[in-house]
Amino acid sequence: MSEAQHMTGGKIAVSDLSVTFVQGRRRIRAVKGVSFSVKPLESFGLVGESGSGKSTVLRAICGLAPVSGGDIRIDGGAIQQPRDKAFARRVQMVFQDPYGSLHPRHTIDRVLSEPLSIHRFADREERIVQALKDVGLDARFRFRLPHQLSGGQRQRVAIARALIVEPEILLLDEPTSALDASIQAEVLNLLNRLREERSLTVIMVSHDLAVIDHMCERLLVMRGGEAVEALDRSSLADRKVSSDYTRALLTASEGYVR
């Protein structure tokens, strides 16, 4: 296993990935030859604006977007197509919109017990109670419906759902962009803590450079489906960036300049 990892250079290796959506006669190339690799236990960021293809990369990894070229490897091995249950045990994702990612008619209890029953866990009751505790949700939320929860609480449920099957890899698609700033801080802290405790490898997508900087060791700036620039934390902190686009993003993250 370790040999294969060395050969391909990481837990997740994406090489020359292309994603093309076909809509009738139109073909939309959402991702055009993007490559990166993520080391075990590393946290990797994808930054870009709308249409940059950053979320599509995540969706391609989980099999929710059609891969038209290149390949994705996990621990050096190719991924089963379509994704099987074993993949679901290893890779989980948290979606951007906490209002859209929880079934409106399922109680929190049902949301959390479903993955346990899919993967035939025995001690479901204890796991649900523990999962709620891990994401800092009171046990009294357990039988509520999503609409009775705030956005931050919903996102905690979504995180609990992703982690309840004990994955090795967690994909985060703008997990805090729909939340208020103060709630964002709580969720980011929670994610950082869980990442440590659960030894997770993380890929996080965001439009917010500051959030990625806070969460990730390395990052890739994307624009229009292409990779613009790969950076690590220290060069970002020193503003050592080579592309004008990254510089524009950096400036924008500081607010309006008269």
């Binding site: 890779v91 979606f95 990612s101 399922h106 479903e114």
Partner: peptide, 26 residues
Amino acid sequence: RADYIAAARLQGAGTLRIITGHIMPM
């Protein structure tokens, strides 16, 4: 195409489970 259906798929839910447990209630 809702995220919660994608989420169920990512949990490893099969088509039958998605139809009866997620789509039918809606």
